[in-house]
């Protein structure tokens, strides 16, 4: 695996992505094993291997604007099976992060972003998932964003099923050592 960064000066986005994902984009030889194993690839506008190709070509803008980076479910199959050990899932994360920082999240994917934010907030507060709180927070944030009532009641029919599996607690449990949690978040927010 090469250690030298072979990216030309022009590929600013690609450089940032490499740094964020701790991986070498030019190790990718476009075999497509990432796309082959991706459970979401059939729904994606730009498949994972093509996103990496765009970055290799210095067309990072197109990658940042892709819908597919928000469709990725972070299952890590791509990175696990990559014959060149390119951290494809990490690249997806990095693309999402950059897209958000630059305010380029496409309107169609805004809800995905809001969900992810709500999810992270939830973990930050509790150290574990509190489903009810997540649902409320996500739906409120979504409603504030696009003012559509339909979101509020979408999936409401799932409630009995969730209840049956004892997923709906009025009061969630929190982890005991919250200081550790704060440190984890502090460290992962520290890009340097």
């Amino acid at each position: 695996m090469n250690t030298a960064n072979p990216l030309p000066q022009a590929c600013a986005t690609a450089r940032v992505i490499e740094a964020l994902a701790h991986t070498h984009l030019y190790d990718c030889y476009q075999c497509g094993k990432c796309t082959a194993g991706c459970p979401m690839a059939a729904q994606m506008d730009i498949a994972p291997n093509r996103l990496i190709r765009l970055l290799q070509l210095g067309r990072g803008r197109e990658a940042l604007d892709a819908q597919s980076i928000w469709q990725c479910v972070s299952c890590q199959t791509c990175a696990t099976r990559c014959p060149k050990s390119v951290n494809c899932a990490g690249i997806m994360d990095a693309l999402r992060q950059l897209s958000m920082e630059e305010g380029r999240v496409s309107p169609a994917q805004r809800r995905v972003m809001l969900f992810q934010k709500a999810f992270l907030d939830n973990i930050r507060r509790n150290g574990r998932l509190h489903e009810l709180e997540l649902i409320v927070q996500f739906k409120l944030a979504g409603f504030m964003h696009d003012r559509r009532f339909s979101l509020l009641f979408k999936d409401a029919t799932l409630a009995p099923k969730l209840n049956k599996r004892k997923k709906l607690h009025l009061r969630g449990k929190k982890v005991r050592d919250r200081a550790v949690l704060r440190r984890i978040f502090a460290r992962s927010m520290d890009h340097s």
Binding site: G32, T35, A36, G37, A47, N49
Partner: peptide, 12 residues
């Protein structure tokens, strides 16, 4: 067999 056709850009 789950593979990809990278020329078409789709999983197959």
């Amino acid at each position: 067999v789950r593979g990809a056709d990278t020329l078409a850009g789709v999983p197959i």
